[in-house]
Structure formats: structure tokens, C-alpha cells
């Protein structure tokens, strides 16, 4: 895929990636369901594509984003019960918003996958549930501002795209299932409890456990050994 090479080169240049993230590709977990080469695109590559779209409406960069995200947003829609036609619309509308809002993307604040997940989520709620997803406005004078974030935490947030993906793989199946149901089935926790025939309290506590585990590992980047993922 020659089209993506310029962006790949940007991040594989020596010293471009943080040291403990250098062997990123080597410890990618196996994903038998996914054969797409585009999946190997790292957070940094995608972030640079977004910046290129914002800076000079770079179509090649946008194509890279399109190839990576459109099929995933389509899959997201299908999981949530969209027809193939609706899932296609969801993917198209989401990518239109990605193009238009690329200038609002801030790589210091979110991974591209998180940013695009938000767009796809809100688009789905707007189009298929005919509601809005109320959100705070970071520029609102009524907002209580964040405290200053230390620089090392900023780096951590950037990495968290890949780190989280890896950590999700390590969760117990029962917790992974509940996260998937929360994000992909548009179900309240009490619906999930009914469906799995579990007490609501169990559903809630397993989700809390899962979130807690992801968080502890995120805030202690060294608690997780990279060797764990070497294949």
C-alpha cells in the first residue's frame, strides 16, 4: 500500500517512538479475526493522518483513515443492530465528520480511535435513536477547568490507544463479554443482567472490576511487562 508509506515513515524513524514502546509490533496480540494490514497502523500514524487532513486537506492521509476506520465503524453499526445499509450510512456520515472536524482533534488529549469512537457513537444516537448525546463544551466559561496535567501523563494518554487494546485482551472472558455488551448492544445494565440471567449487582461489580483493572494498569505503565505479549 504505497499510499500510507509516508505516514508510516514518520513514526518508524529512529527515536520517534517512546523507548518502552519501541517493539510495539512485536508484541501485538494475535487476532485471528483480523487480517487487515491496516490494523497494524499505530495511534501515532493515525494521529498524523488526522493532522495532515486538518493542515492541508490531505486526501491521501484521509484515505488511510478511511481504510482503517470506515470498515470498523460499519462493524460497530452492525453489532448494534443496524442493517448493512444503515451501517454503511453510519460509516459514511462518521467519515464526513472526521474530515470536517479534523482541525478539532488534539493528539495530546485523545487517541484517534477514541476521538472517532465518540463521533460514531454520537452519530448513531442521533440517526437511529433520534436523541442527542448531551456533552460538555470544553470551551464553555461555565466549565470547571482541569488542573494542569503533568507532561508524563500526557505521554501516557497518547500511548493508551495501543496499551488499552492490549490490556483488553488480558481481561477475564466474563468481564470482556460485559464490556462488549455495554458498548455494542445498546443495552442498559439491567437488560444485560436479564439477558445473562445474572443479578444486576453482579453485572455492575464485574464492570467496575474490569474498569478498575484497566485503570490500574494504565496508571502504572511498568506494571505490565512487554514480554507478556511476545509471541
Amino acid at each position: 500500500m504505497p499510499a500510507i508509506r509516508p505516514y508510516l515513515r514518520l513514526v518508524t524513524a529512529p527515536g520517534a517512538a517512546p523507548p518502552h514502546n519501541g517493539n510495539r509490533i512485536a508484541f501485538m496480540p494475535e487476532r485471528t479475526t483480523d487480517t487487515s494490514a491496516a490494523n497494524d497502523l499505530a495511534t501515532n500514524d493515525l494521529a498524523k493522518c488526522l493532522s495532515a487532513v486538518a493542515a492541508h486537506q490531505d486526501r491521501r492521509a484521509f484515505r488511510t483513515l478511511f481504510d482503517h476506520f470506515a470498515p470498523r465503524v460499519r462493524a460497530y453499526g452492525m453489532r448494534l443492530g443496524c442493517t448493512p445499509q444503515q451501517a454503511e450510512e453510519l460509516a459514511q456520515e462518521t467519515m464526513v465528520k472526521v474530515w470536517r472536524k479534523a482541525g478539532l482533534f488534539d493528539p495530546a488529549k485523545a487517541a484517534p480511535s477514541t476521538w472517532i469512537f465518540r463521533i460514531a457513537r454520537n452519530q448513531r444516537i442521533d440517526a437511529f435513536r433520534r436523541e442527542s448525546h448531551p456533552e460538555f463544551d470544553p470551551n464553555d466559561p461555565g466549565l470547571v477547568p482541569d488542573e494542569e496535567i503533568p507532561a508524563d501523563q500526557l505521554i501516557e494518554q497518547r500511548q493508551s490507544g495501543e496499551a488499552l487494546r492490549l490490556m483488553l485482551e488480558t481481561l477475564p472472558e466474563e468481564q470482556k463479554l460485559l464490556l462488549h455488551m455495554s458498548f455494542y448492544q445498546d443495552m442498559s445494565h439491567s437488560h444485560i443482567a436479564d439477558k445473562l440471567n445474572l443479578p444486576l449487582g453482579t453485572v455492575k461489580s464485574r464492570l467496575r472490576l474490569a474498569m478498575g483493572k484497566l485503570k490500574t494498569r494504565l496508571t502504572e505503565p511498568h506494571a505490565i511487562s512487554t514480554e507478556e505479549f511476545d509471541t
Binding site: A110, A111, S113, T114, A120, G161, R165, L214
Partner: peptide, 10 residues
């Protein structure tokens, strides 16, 4: 939301 992003990516 980052978990949502990671799930989307996966």
C-alpha cells in the same frame, strides 16, 4: 471512552 476506542480498533 478510550475503552470504546480500543474496542472499535479491535
Amino acid at each position: 471512552e478510550s475503552i470504546g476506542g480500543a474496542l472499535l480498533d479491535a
